[in-house]
Amino acid sequence: MNIFRLAGDMTHLFSVLVLLLKIHTIKSCAGISLKTQELYAIVFATRYLDIFTNYISLYNTIMKLIFLGSSFSIVWYMRRHKIVRRSYDKDQDTFRHYFLMLPCLILALIINEKFTFREVMWTFSLYLEAVAILPQLVLLQRTRNIDNLTGQYVFLLGAYRAFYILNWIYRYFTEEHFVHWITWISGLVQTLLYADFFYYYFQSWKNNVKLELPA
């Protein structure tokens, strides 16, 4: 474990806590894409298949349980909770996210580190996570009214993978044979997808104006 990875995990944790806080306290999910949340639930489900078979550390197991629990409960809130579901904007959240899954699965079957079920599922989750934010970014462009919590949620979600890139650089220089091109490229693509959001988020913060994404 290194400081970059810890910072990344904490940032990721805060992103889900901010989202859960928003949904739980104001009982609203306005501006949140259910599609992105469903993709994230699938990402965690396919990445943590070995949560009970491959014990790494207490920290690792607890964090996996938190990410699994939070992503599925957010999907539950947005689908089932009688108050929250009313604020879900399904007419705007129309990204065909299932179309994202097939290319990720095919790519995972072709490009992976080891052709085993668990490794292919893990690689699938990596590719899927890289594109999981797309429905959310599309929704933000459409609805344009980005409330603070949603803006913070997307910002933290993008920042966590940027910390992970620093973690991979650190591990590359400090651990022998730590070479994982698939993870690195996928993580880089994921972070780049947030680039324009980061730009507008920073501009709005610098000029102290409400966050607006261009149409």
Binding site: D50, N60, F67, R171, H177, F178, H180, T183
Partner: peptide, 10 residues
């Protein structure tokens, strides 16, 4: 040589 795997990450 211990091949470090990436699966110790979240």
């Amino acid at each position: 040589k211990v091949i470090v795997n990436i699966h110790d990450e979240l």
